[in-house]
Design a protein around this nucleic acid. Sequence first.
DNA 1: GCCAACGTTGGC
DNA 2: GCCAACGTTGGC
Length: 158
Amino acid sequence: MVRDRRYWLVKSEPAKYSIDDLAAEPGQRACWDGVRNYQARNFMRDEMRLGDGVLFYHSAVQPPGVAGTARVVREAYPDSTQFDPDSPAYDPRARPDEPRWWMVDLKLTRRFERLIPLAELRATRGLEAMLLLRRGQRLSVMPVSAEQWRIILSLADA
DNA sequence: GCCAACGTTGGC
DNA sequence: GCCAACGTTGGC
């Protein structure tokens, strides 16, 4: 029995890694490494499944917003950067036989014609409960409901 | 650049 | 286990 497709939102600072960078990857797919927050990790490791939909969000940029969508094309496996002393995401506490951090692979599915700005999300009926819009919320990987997904795609097409 | 919010660390 | 100090995130 296959569970229903689920939806997520991942944040990235475009100065570090933008949706254009994902588009430029071979096969337009990449491993989503460097996540160093336990709650975000748990979502990736325990709940993200092949085929799930992902909103690609640009943060720490003016304006912030949703830039497009991706799909989970590989489920969680150990994040290799945790073992790499040269990586900024290196974690000396992690051991290969007991990885602490995990990543998934994402593949670009769509680059929106226009960025959907955070302010527009805030002003859109039906999105009031979005986790992203909670004040002080800093998760870099978070769930999105099917309804929220549908509404945001409709904004992209509007 | 500011700063609120929040997660993590580490002394006790 | 508590909690103060500290670091980071990320909107503004």
